[in-house]
Design a binder for these strands. Structure first.
Lengths: 157, 157
DNA sequence: ACCTCTTGGGTGACAGGTCAACTACTCGGA
DNA sequence: TCCGAGTAGTTGACCTGTCACCCAAGAGGT
């Protein structure tokens, strides 16, 4: 609830606010997607990436990279989505190790049913509440944090 | 990757930045906790809450409320932590339905080993990178979003 | 041709989380 | 006293994500 040690209490409150806000929006998106199209945010991320891709298809690795997932996560997720008919797998003719993941018709339908509500939640819960300065502050914060994390990660102690 | 539909591209980038930043920090904290004390962030949240409580103990429900978890999540988590000796359960004398969750010695040790690194990651990755204006922007954003989410939640369509 | 290194991807075991029951107890009447 | 409603917590089924490991196939040197 409060300061665990040696941290400015006001800073601590900022961190709490930041992290709970993210989770709250995620929950709202999750519920809306489930309600509108019966899919999860994980499903949605995959469908969006495929829908935007050339020919509605991506190699498994490219898909993983585009949404910053581990390859095994992609593999499990694609299997489950294929079982539900949202995507299809296809062998890659030029590299026998590779797999194409292809948007299936049901997947395209689900994406179409989902994206409007997704954007609406984001718009109403997030963007409508931010003025230009705040958006700017968020963007520059993200840059600086990403930058700092690189260093924290390589210097763990 | 890019705009899914009808959203200002710049806004979309802000959302991406916001949500990936949160996840990146979470990952960094998770790794650091694992490295320093062999615990997860879920473990840490529970330990912190207990460490701050009177007598290093809380009723399961109060614990759940203090970290905004569902009661079943608490129950599972406490069982696993008890198996590892981080916490102990105790019957409640005044209400036979209740359970006290008590910080065990190993849990206190793990918390002590973990909290310094936790704060350090947060400090270096997050607070050091924000100036006062940005912190202010984050805090007010969180307020407004929380406010908006209440309305989005009750008006799903 | 052969051998090794790397790469693309899949798998199984496991930890974590949610949901929906279910148990056991408390409390406030009639 | 008894009964119904609400409360505290647990449990089991199920889904998601991670980790470690595996395998098959390309790439490049000899």
């Amino acid at each position: 609830m409060s300061d665990p040690s040696g941290l400015h209490p006001a800073d601590w409150a900022v961190w709490r606010a930041f992290s709970t806000t993210g989770r709250s929006i995620d929950r709202a998106l999750e519920q809306r997607l489930q309600h509108d199209a019966g899919i999860s945010t994980a499903d949605f991320d995959v469908l969006r990436s495929l829908a935007e891709a050339d020919g509605h298809r991506l190699r498994a690795g490219a898909l993983a990279e585009s949404i910053d997932w581990e390859k095994s996560r992609i593999s499990h997720q694609v299997r489950r989505m294929a079982e539900r008919g949202l995507v299809e797998r296809a062998d890659c003719p030029t590299d026998a190790r590779g797999t194409w993941v292809v948007l299936a018709e049901r997947g395209a339908d689900a994406f179409a049913a989902a994206s409007c509500g997704y954007v609406e939640v984001l718009q109403r819960a997030f963007f409508d509440r931010l003025d230009a300065d705040q958006k700017q502050a968020l963007a520059s914060m993200a840059d600086r944090v990403a930058d700092a994390l690189d260093r924290v990660a390589v210097a763990p102690r």
